[in-house]
């Protein structure tokens, strides 16, 4: 029992990442009808926003500390981050420590900008082209983006720690009445799950309760009619693309402490996220979220030793296996809408 709870918890953080990326993919697909293979690259760019901000914050200048000496007896040179000069040492340390959460503020404008430029500059010209062309051009874009990142940041993973307040683990077992230390769960993963839940809730609320969201939903259902009513739907869809990019980017920012970002992390997630989208049903936002969490949890449960003893290697293939079964038995996916990409 405790093992299952532990695996469900483990599945939640991976599931959160899948759900966030799949949500953005579905937003783009539902609004613009574009299959965006570069979405994983947006996730990766988000992660590197966090890396960039923490590098900016730790930019430092060298000061000679007269009170101490190094081993040769010369006055010790100390690197002092500029942020100390502005806020003083104590506040500066706290800011550097909280670099990853702070990156959220930094990543939102960057990601919206990247998304809008991408849509206006490239994707716009591909609405009328076949889906295969859209896949190919965004696949090319993904290669370009990841190579650009590789050029600037190198090929090695860059560790980006969580704030020290979240470095420990939370003992779930004690709380639920099991033995202590049977179910322990890193704080940051809890934070990630909560964060994902908030973002998902915010996106749904935005679409459901604002006029803007209502128009966008109307546009998703019937773009032409909304256009005929004199509403500039293209502009709103562009903003939705920016929003989807921001969702992917934020998923990336918060994922950095869990996995050190490297330039191909986007591609690794992209393949799985596409599977998630297809399982959830093309164009269905709740489907994407549901499938994201479902597959994340299934993946962790399949990696339990008890399961692996019976069916070795299941954890490696479970997601694909589920996708194949779903696609063959429920062609629209779990919650797919009628008439979307059915051919």
């Amino acid at each position: 029992m405790d093992a299952i709870i532990l695996q469900i918890l483990n599945g939640l953080d991976k599931g959160s990442a899948y759900a966030l990326i799949a949500l953005g993919l579905t937003l783009i697909f539902g609004t613009l009808g574009v299959v965006n293979f570069a979405h994983g690259a947006l996730f990766m760019i988000g992660a590197f926003c966090a890396v960039t901000l923490s590098r900016i914050l730790t930019l430092s200048h060298t000061v000679i500390d007269e009170t101490k000496t190094d081993f040769l007896g010369n006055p010790l040179k100390v690197d002092v981050p500029y942020i100390y000069d502005i806020f003083g040492q104590a506040t500066g340390d706290v800011i550097i420590d909280w670099a990853v959460p702070l990156s959220i503020l930094f990543a939102i404008p960057v990601m919206v900008g990247v998304g809008v430029i991408m849509e206006r500059g490239l994707i716009k010209h591909f609405y009328k082209r076949p889906h295969a062309d859209q896949i190919l051009v965004t696949f090319g874009l993904a290669i370009v983006l990841q190579e650009v990142i590789k050029y600037f940041y190198g090929a090695n993973p860059i560790p980006t720690p969580a704030p020290s307040a979240f470095t420990g683990s939370f003992d779930f077992g004690a709380m639920l009445g099991f033995d202590p230390n049977t179910i322990i769960y890193p704080y940051w993963r809890l934070v990630y799950f909560a964060f994902a839940a908030i973002i998902i809730g915010a996106v749904f609320a935005f679409l459901q309760f604002t006029t803007f969201g209502m128009v966008v939903r109307a546009g998703m259902a019937d773009r032409e009619t909304v256009g005929l009513l004199g509403i500039n739907i293209d502009k709103r869809f562009t903003i939705m693309f920016g929003l989807a990019a921001a969702v992917a980017g934020l998923a990336g920012v918060m994922y950095t402490p869990i996995n050190s970002p490297n330039y191909h992390m986007g591609m690794d997630f992209l393949v799985l996220s596409f599977v998630v989208v297809v399982v959830g049903g093309m164009g269905s936002l709740p489907g994407a979220v549901l499938a994201g969490f479902l597959l994340g949890i299934l993946e962790s449960i399949a990696s339990m030793t008890q399961v692996l003893d019976v069916l070795p290697g299941l954890n490696q293939i479970i997601i694909y296996l589920v996708a194949i079964i779903i696609l063959l038995t429920r062609p629209r996916g779990l919650m797919g809408r009628k008439g979307v990409m059915e051919e």
Binding site: V35, F274, V275, Y320, L327, M341
Partner: peptide
């Protein structure tokens, strides 16, 4: 059995499964 993007994903899924196995 499927076409378009679903076909692409299915073939991708089979290939990744073979790789993982």
């Amino acid at each position: 059995r499927r076409s378009g993007i679903y076909f692409s994903i299915l073939t991708l899924a089979f290939a990744q499964m073979s790789y993982a196995l």
